[in-house]
Measured scan of single mutants.
Amino acid sequence: GKMTGIVKWFNADKGFGFITPDDGSKDVFVHFSAIQNDGYKSLDEGQKVSFTIESGAKGPAAGNVTSL
């Protein structure tokens, strides 16, 4: 299901970062391709987001990332 969290950091040049889930679980990798907006796909440190957990090739990653 949907989770919420805070963006820990995001490197716009490399197109990835990490989200710290509100439930205290392990930080989740986020790739820019998972960001659900029409414009420039980037996130800001400290931004609140909702997301799902998808299993990627390198382990769990955030999917369906939407800013709240």
Rank of each mutant, 00 (worst) to 15 (best):
G1Y: 15
G1T: 14
G1Q: 04
G1S: 14
G1K: 15
G1V: 11
G1H: 09
K2C: 08
K2D: 06
K2A: 09
M3A: 09
T4A: 04
T4H: 11
T4P: 02
T4R: 08
T4S: 10
G5T: 01
G5A: 01
G5Y: 00
G5R: 00
I6M: 10
I6H: 12
I6V: 15
I6F: 09
V7N: 00
V7F: 02
V7D: 01
V7M: 03
K8W: 00
K8Q: 05
W9M: 08
W9D: 06
W9L: 06
F10P: 01
F10Q: 02
F10L: 03
N11P: 00
N11V: 03
N11I: 04
N11E: 05
N11K: 10
A12L: 09
A12G: 11
A12F: 06
A12H: 13
D13V: 15
K14H: 06
K14E: 08
G15K: 06
G15W: 01
F16T: 05
F16L: 05
G17R: 00
G17E: 00
G17D: 02
G17P: 00
G17K: 01
F18C: 06
F18D: 03
F18S: 05
F18T: 04
F18Q: 07
I19N: 00
I19D: 00
I19G: 01
T20M: 12
T20K: 15
T20E: 14
P21L: 03
P21Q: 03
P21M: 03
P21E: 00
D22F: 05
D22I: 06
D22Q: 06
D22K: 05
D23K: 08
D23N: 13
D23E: 11
G24S: 08
G24N: 08
G24Q: 09
G24H: 11
G24A: 08
S25E: 10
S25I: 05
S25T: 12
S25A: 10
S25N: 07
S25F: 06
K26P: 12
K26E: 12
D27G: 04
D27H: 04
D27V: 02
D27Y: 02
V28T: 04
V28M: 04
V28F: 04
F29N: 03
F29M: 07
F29A: 06
V30W: 01
V30C: 11
V30Y: 03
V30A: 03
H31L: 02
H31S: 06
H31P: 05
H31T: 04
F32E: 12
F32M: 11
F32H: 10
S33Y: 03
S33P: 04
A34C: 06
A34I: 01
A34T: 08
I35L: 08
I35T: 04
I35K: 03
Q36P: 05
Q36A: 13
Q36C: 11
Q36Y: 06
Q36R: 13
Q36F: 04
N37I: 11
N37F: 13
N37M: 15
N37D: 15
N37W: 08
D38A: 12
D38P: 11
D38F: 07
D38L: 11
G39H: 10
K41W: 05
K41N: 09
K41H: 07
K41S: 09
S42I: 11
L43D: 00
L43A: 02
L43T: 01
L43F: 05
L43W: 04
L43P: 03
D44H: 15
D44S: 15
D44R: 14
E45I: 10
E45R: 15
E45K: 15
G46W: 02
Q47P: 00
K48H: 15
K48Q: 13
K48E: 14
K48Y: 12
V49Q: 00
V49R: 01
V49S: 01
S50N: 08
S50V: 05
S50G: 08
S50H: 08
F51I: 00
F51H: 02
F51K: 02
F51E: 01
T52E: 10
T52K: 08
I53F: 08
I53W: 10
I53K: 13
I53S: 06
I53R: 11
S55A: 15
S55N: 14
S55T: 12
S55C: 10
A57D: 12
A57M: 12
A57R: 15
A57Q: 12
K58P: 06
K58T: 07
K58Q: 09
K58E: 08
G59K: 05
G59M: 05
P60L: 12
A61Q: 15
A62G: 03
G63H: 11
N64S: 08
N64T: 03
V65S: 01
V65F: 00
V65T: 02
V65Q: 01
V65K: 00
T66A: 11
T66W: 09
S67R: 12
S67V: 15
S67G: 12
S67P: 15
S67I: 12
L68Y: 09
L68A: 10
L68H: 10
L68R: 07
